[in-house]
Simulated scan of single mutants.
Amino acid sequence: MQKTIKCRKISKGYAKGEVIITKDPLSFLGGVDPKTGVIIDSGHELYGEKITSKILVIPSGKGSTVGSYVIFQMAKNKTAPKAIISLKAEPIIATGAIMAGIPMVDEPDADILNILKTGDIVEVDADKEVINILNEGF
C-alpha cells in the first residue's frame, strides 16, 4: 500500500528509509549525541534510540540555536538522520538541515504522528513536496 502525503519543502533533497517517530519535540543541543546519533535526553520518549540513517519524524524542535550546528556536525560524523519530517519547522532545525544537506519537510496535510509508526518505510521527496508511505510496519 502506498499513501502520498503533501507537505512543504524546508531543505531540498530526497531520502528513503525507515521511520523513527516521536510525539515529543526534540532539542539537538543536549538531546542528541552528535558522535553516535543516540538520543541522550533522559526525559525524551526516544531516550537511548539511534536516529542515524532514519527518517526522523517530530512535532517540532526546541532549544538553543547551537542545535543547528549539532545537526551539521552529525552530518559530518555520518550520524545524522536521512531526512526530517516535522509538523512545524522552526528555525533551529530548519537551519541545521539546510546546512547539513538533510532533506526536510513540514506542514504535512495528514496527521502523520498518528499515521506513521516507527519501522514504516517512507520516501521524503522535498523537491516534489511529498511523503510517500511505502509499507507500513504492522
Rank of each mutant, 00 (worst) to 15 (best):
I20C: 09
K62N: 09
I55W: 05
L26W: 04
A110G: 00
I21H: 05
T79P: 08
K50Y: 01
A110Q: 07
N114Y: 00
P103F: 00
G101W: 09
A15G: 14
D109C: 00
V105A: 01
D33P: 15
P34R: 07
L29T: 11
F28M: 10
L29R: 08
E90W: 06
V57P: 10
I58T: 06
D111L: 05
I20H: 02
P59C: 03
V32L: 07
I20N: 02
D41H: 11
G31M: 15
I39D: 02
S68D: 02
I84A: 13
T65W: 07
E49T: 10
T52K: 15
P91C: 00
D111H: 09
I51G: 05
A100L: 05
D111Y: 08
T95F: 03
A15R: 10
V32Y: 06
I71S: 09
S60H: 04
E49N: 15
G63E: 01
D109S: 09
D24P: 00
S64F: 03
I51S: 05
T65Y: 15
A89K: 11
I115W: 02
P91W: 05
G63W: 01
G30A: 03
A100I: 06
G17K: 14
K54C: 13
T36D: 08
A75F: 12
F28H: 04
S42C: 03
N114L: 01
K23Y: 01
G63T: 01
A15W: 12
P25K: 15
D24S: 07
A80H: 14
G67D: 01
I21S: 06
P91L: 04
G67Q: 02
I58H: 04
S64K: 12
D109Q: 14
T95S: 14
G48N: 11
K78M: 14
P25S: 13
E107S: 06
G61S: 14
V70A: 11
T36W: 07
I40E: 00
V38M: 03
I102V: 14
I93S: 11
K16S: 07
S68H: 04
D24R: 10
S64I: 02
G48H: 11
P81I: 12
P81R: 05
A15N: 10
A110S: 03
M74A: 08
Q73G: 09
A89H: 01
K16E: 14
S27D: 12
E45S: 09
K16H: 10
P108A: 03
P25Y: 04
N77V: 14
L46G: 03
I102R: 09
S64M: 10
T36R: 09
I115D: 02
K62I: 05
I55G: 13
I115N: 06
S68W: 00
I39N: 01
S53M: 13
V32A: 10
I20Y: 08
Y69P: 01
A100Q: 09
D24I: 00
I20K: 10
G61L: 11
A110K: 09
T52L: 02
L87H: 11
V19T: 10
H44L: 04
S86W: 00
E90M: 11
T65A: 08
N114D: 09
E49Y: 06
G96I: 07
L29K: 12
N114S: 05
P108S: 07
E18L: 14
M99A: 02
E90R: 12
I20L: 15
A80G: 13
T95Q: 09
